[in-house]
Design a protein around this nucleic acid. Structure first.
Lengths: 343, 343
DNA sequence: GACTGTCTTCAAAACGTTTTGAGCACGTTG
DNA sequence: CAACGTGCTCAAAACGTTTTGAAGACAGTC
């Protein structure tokens, strides 16, 4: 491992000049810069990150804590996020330190990682309404970025899709097709995004003068079987009049709904329209051959780069207001939606 | 953040003395040590890891790279390992830096992480026969530890269960019950442990003068459906005479086998004995109510502490020979095994 | 030839720790 | 009293980088 001193000795320059040459400072002459660059390449110079960090006071590492669910499997979207985040952070020369925790106290693992003083900030995923982690990190003054939003004023960097509008767009599409009885199979109620979806669903229906047939919160059961079970209940009239359209928080839930429709000999979309939100994970698709879902789509993958950049920029002192991104999911019409059946 | 200098100033001592007092060096008087400890506590002193590492030349971080499978979900055992490893490493004051990679070249991500010079070593999981990562890290002189083993001389630290004996113990139990026609539904052939299981299976049968009915390599399909499909094939005689006992690489495969037996109206264990290896993950069990599997059991969880310690010790210079652990799985007899049916 | 300014470079300090080599105070031994 | 250990402490160097403040070289202007 060669150092700045080695390069300096080789070229008869001081370490200061070598450092500035490599870091692109303007006050070093073009000729010297070229010589230094060349020597650095020749000697295989790699800056010692530890030394860099000692002097800059930054660790160049950010943390992410993933909570283990009771059934010991993690959030299905977790790997996609992890892959994208490590790559996007690496592009900014930042490493991701991962911790896994099954603590009851949601902030305890953050406190633990913080007291070692090794982290510049955190990525928070799967926010819940009024997330305690936000309050904790805010009082400590630690930079962080949310994938999603919590309730209350968003005085933090985040990247989120407009979940209320996701439901609104789905409702618009379906009511335009004549549907009047809609139900929502939502995500887990403890998650902030599910609350937004429900809110948007109710608001969009209300603006058409309609009331929801049902809003059913997700469970910890596998999403496909949740969709299957609840769709059976809905379609056999256990929640009142049978809905003509079912909105699903995920494509996996939709797969269960389609299976239930098949079992009940209901044609999609002739008897029932099904719509879902699609996070773009390949594993979630294709389970219903011959049927392309109508969806709102916002690939999870696209969140990673903005998330990584927002966090790194926040650590670098960029004001919060410039680091808030709310994107609107696109609507992709497949063949699982059609005109409402005549009653 | 208070420093050694702060403590020294407070007490009228040099930083050298403070450092030695806190690090338990013998040449500091008991009285001074007590005063220093007290002041450190009072000032909330936390050693600056970056500075420590600059001078010791160690980063205090080790890496683990998890490969994304084609279907974008990870090794099911991955989270268990991750949880345990982070905890066990934390106990030795070491952080785990995780990278996710879907590179075609298995060593490329290691090279990438290495050139940044931030890592003291690696944890290698899911080894394949003649693992190229082992060759790569060996030539680079980077410490690493294997969860499992590769083929060839084991000149590296590892923690592994004796997979040949796993099969041997299962075969012994079943042949003692009179079984003569055994089949093995193995793990994926590309994994080193599966090769060992197959080898042990064949050897144990051979020593009884028997030949296997079939050894079927696992696929990338979900294990339960792999077990179901292949068990149907075996039990309907598609591989020759129907086996009276099926060995399964995992409890999930066994769940599929039990489902196939149910569908074929075969009683377990009257008509068919089923055995599996159990890695102790809760999610894998319980899917067959009223039936407790006969298994060899070696909880994955128990590997983490020895793995972490072996790696940290190796980084600290402990010779390889002292860091190799081969454990034997215990045999737990449930009610899925019984005397061989009369033919 | 002195003064000013610009461009380029340098020596040194700083970050917080560990470790080396030396030194002081004290008591023991010859 | 000299010599010698022993127990404790300290100043300083080292790790490799960034950054500060100063200064050398050179040209242009009066």
């Amino acid at each position: 491992m060669s150092t700045l001193k080695d390069i300096g000795a080789e070229l008869g320059l001081s370490v200061a000049t070598v450092s500035r040459a490599l870091n692109g400072f303007p006050e070093v002459s073009a000729k010297t810069r070229a010589r230094v660059r060349d020597a650095a390449l020749r000697l295989g110079y790699q800056p010692n990150r530890i030394a860099q960090r000692l002097v800059t006071g930054r660790s160049g590492m950010v943390g992410m804590i993933v909570r283990i669910q009771p059934d010991m499997s993690a959030d299905p979207s977790f790997f996609e996020t992890l892959t994208g985040l490590t790559a996007a952070l690496a592009a900014r020369d930042v490493d991701l330190v991962l911790a896994v925790d099954r603590d009851d106290d949601p902030v305890a693992p953050y406190a633990r990682m913080l007291e070692k003083g090794m982290l510049d900030g955190f990525v928070l995923n799967a926010p819940v309404p009024d997330d305690p982690r936000v309050a904790f990190l805010r009082t400590r003054g630690i930079p962080f970025v949310l994938h999603g939003q919590t309730t209350g004023p968003a005085d933090y960097p985040f990247y989120d899709i407009d979940n209320a509008t996701v439901s609104g767009d789905q409702v618009s599409l379906l009511t335009a097709l004549g549907h009047r009885r809609l139900a929502l199979l939502n995500g887990e109620a403890r998650l902030a995004y599910a609350a937004e979806r429900a809110r948007g669903f109710r608001a969009a229906l209300a603006s058409e003068g309609l009331a929801p047939v049902a809003v059913i919160d997700g469970t910890e059961a596998p999403p496909e079987s949740f969709g299957y079970t609840e769709a059976l209940a809905l379609l056999t009239g256990r929640h009142g009049p049978r809905p003509t359209a079912i909105l699903c928080a995920t494509t996996l839930i939709a797969a269960g709904v389609l299976r239930a429709a098949r079992d009940l000999r209901l044609a999609v979309p002739a008897d029932l329209s099904v719509m879902a939100h699609d996070d773009g994970l390949p594993r979630n698709a294709g389970s219903t051959p011959g049927q392309t879902l109508s969806v709102t789509r916002a690939p999870l993958r696209e969140a990673c780069v903005p998330l990584a950049n927002a966090l790194v920029d926040r650590v670098g002192g960029v004001p919060v207001e410039k680091l808030q991104t709310l994107v609107r999911a696109s609507v992709v019409v497949g063949d699982s939606t059609g005109p409402a059946p005549l009653l």
